[in-house]
Amino acid sequence: MEDSNLPSLVRLSIGGKKFCTTIDTLTRREPDSMLAAVFSSRHTVYQDSEKGYVFVDRDGKHFRHILNWLRDGVVPTLTDSEYSELIREAEYYQLLISHIGLIEGISSVLNKRKEDEKSPAELTHTDVIKCIQSERVKFRGVNLSGLDLSKLDLSFVDFSFACLKNVLFSRANLRCAKFRDVDAVGSNFHNATLRKEDASLIDCSFCGADLRCAHLHADLTDANLEGANLEGANLKGAKLSNANLKGANLRRTYLHHVNLCDTHLEGAKLDGANLLGAIR
């Protein structure tokens, strides 16, 4: 039966699943697709003379998503494996010629999922309050950027690999907290407690942390800052006696009148650091 004789309403049987749509839907959004070719006088198609359905020998599981794309240009929300199946169907129907085809739309969704999986999970100030009521708290890899965590008891909390940009830790209790490889650019540790009463123990660890432009006006006695990036940080008034700053980046760091007595600075980079009045 010739296309030109088909009514505007089309009944389709996709692998046995029944669908009803219009020629306009099948041809308008993707004019160069296989479906558009079939239903726009460029092909001869055959119908079941008794039931009036045009048969297509494909799995009908995802054809409703194909139709919805043709109707509205919307990419459905599916699992990764279902997206793989839908891409195969989209390739068969050649839905990839329009300005933003279905396959390109699915690829964008999958790429965003991968980016979201890599991004640190975000917690709010309230979430933190709830969490620290537990005995053992870990915020490894979470995103706490911009939060005000001042005056909180965050002792023994593991912040390793977390995103702590511009976090306010002023007067917080950070005894024995772990900040290994954190991104703490611009954070404020003004008057934070970072060590136990037992000064012989190395307590707070910032090993490998990014503390560029951070404000560390705190007692960092015995703290582990090995390999930390402190470029441009403000350490005015900080106590760094016996702190481990081996290999740390202290370029342009403000160390005015800082107590560096017994501080381990082997391999540290001090180019442009302000050491005026520092005690060494």
Rank of each mutant, 00 (worst) to 15 (best):
S4V: 10
L6F: 06
S8W: 02
L9A: 10
R11K: 15
I14T: 02
I14A: 01
I14Y: 05
K17E: 14
K18M: 14
F19D: 09
F19L: 02
T21C: 11
T21A: 02
T22M: 06
D24F: 11
T25L: 14
L26V: 09
P31R: 04
D32M: 06
M34T: 12
M34C: 07
L35K: 07
F39S: 08
F39N: 05
S41P: 00
S41G: 09
H43Q: 14
T44N: 14
Y46N: 13
Q47E: 13
D48K: 12
D48R: 11
Y53I: 11
Y53V: 03
F55M: 11
K61L: 12
H62F: 15
R64P: 00
I66L: 09
L67R: 01
N68C: 06
N68Q: 14
G73W: 10
V74H: 12
T77V: 12
E82H: 09
E85A: 15
E85R: 01
L86V: 07
A90W: 06
Y92S: 06
Y93S: 07
L95T: 05
I97H: 14
S98H: 08
G101D: 08
I103F: 08
I106S: 10
S107F: 12
N111F: 09
K114I: 13
K114G: 04
K114V: 13
E115K: 14
K118P: 03
S119R: 15
P120E: 07
E122G: 04
T124K: 09
D127G: 04
V128E: 13
V128R: 01
V128S: 03
C131M: 15
I132K: 02
R140L: 10
G141M: 04
V142R: 04
N143F: 05
S145W: 05
L149F: 07
D153F: 08
S155Q: 13
S155G: 15
S155R: 13
F156C: 11
D158N: 15
F159W: 05
K165D: 12
F169A: 00
S170E: 04
A172M: 01
A172G: 07
L174E: 00
R175D: 00
R175Y: 01
R175N: 03
C176T: 07
C176P: 00
C176H: 11
K178S: 14
D183M: 08
A184R: 06
V185D: 05
F189T: 00
H190P: 00
A192E: 01
E197I: 13
D198Q: 13
D198V: 08
D198P: 04
D203T: 14
C204Y: 03
C207I: 11
G208N: 11
A214R: 01
H215F: 06
L216K: 00
L220W: 02
A223D: 03
L225N: 09
G227D: 13
N234G: 07
N234I: 02
L235H: 02
A238Q: 01
K239P: 01
L240R: 02
L240M: 14
L240A: 03
S241C: 12
A243C: 09
N249T: 06
R251C: 05
Y254T: 09
H257K: 13
N259S: 14
C261I: 11
C261M: 10
L265G: 08
E266N: 08
L270G: 02
G272I: 00
A278V: 02
I279W: 10
R280D: 06
